[in-house]
Amino acid sequence: MPTGVAIREVRRQLFDAAERVLRDGGPSALTSRAVTAEAGCAKGVLHRHFTDFDDFLARLVEDRAAGVEARAAELRGAAGTGTVTGNLTAALAELFGTVALAVVGLVAARDELRARLRRRWPTGVPLLAEATASLAAYLTAERDLGRLAAEADVESLAPALIGGGHLLYADRTGPPPTAETVERMVAALVGPALRTPRG
């Protein structure tokens, strides 16, 4: 196996392990020892591939942000199909049903990580910034197709949807909101801009 492939595989294994630790235990549970134990490898493996633990965490955040950006194309491709409300509800469930909330907490909790990430994200919150851009692009596509009113303010609707979704999913220890709850929030925000009665 070429070296580049092996390095990518090790990084993927460590990132996936870190996501599981974050999802199960939150930011306070995320240590280099917890990550390598979850990944089933020696602690030194992490330090062979990253300069320090904050470098690892910064790369983890960047990797997960790239995943959000990749899914943005899928969401844009859904424009004109299904319902606007249904597509947005599914997108929010996918975003907040993953590690996004834990990453936001992680960034808030670690000063050094936040400082490193400011090089790429001088403003905004990693993952949520990409998700907001994704929703704005989708809403713009729906507006161009005539399913949203021409005057719909997608630049305001997108962050409002992210903020509403974040609040609904914020309690990591309790059960997630139902699809109906999320859809009701989405409909309340987007409904006035819909050109079709069932949106």
Rank of each mutant, 00 (worst) to 15 (best):
F96A: 12
A188Q: 13
R143W: 08
P176M: 09
A137L: 02
T83N: 04
L60Y: 02
A133C: 07
L92F: 09
A100D: 07
P176K: 10
L148R: 08
L92D: 11
R147W: 10
T81H: 06
E94K: 08
A108N: 06
R184V: 09
A78R: 15
T85G: 07
L148A: 12
P177K: 10
A136V: 05
P176F: 09
R76Q: 13
A149I: 05
T51R: 13
I162G: 06
A133D: 12
A70Q: 08
G163Q: 02
R119P: 08
H49E: 07
R116A: 11
A66N: 01
A72T: 01
L57H: 01
P126L: 02
P159V: 03
R116F: 10
A129L: 15
R184A: 14
R184M: 09
D55G: 06
L161R: 03
A70F: 00
G86Y: 06
L75N: 06
Y138V: 11
A141F: 05
D55Y: 04
L57R: 08
A170V: 07
L139E: 04
A152L: 10
E180T: 13
V104M: 08
V182N: 10
L117E: 13
R64Q: 14
R119L: 15
A152N: 10
E151L: 09
L135F: 15
K43S: 06
L135D: 04
G44T: 03
E180S: 13
A70L: 03
A133N: 06
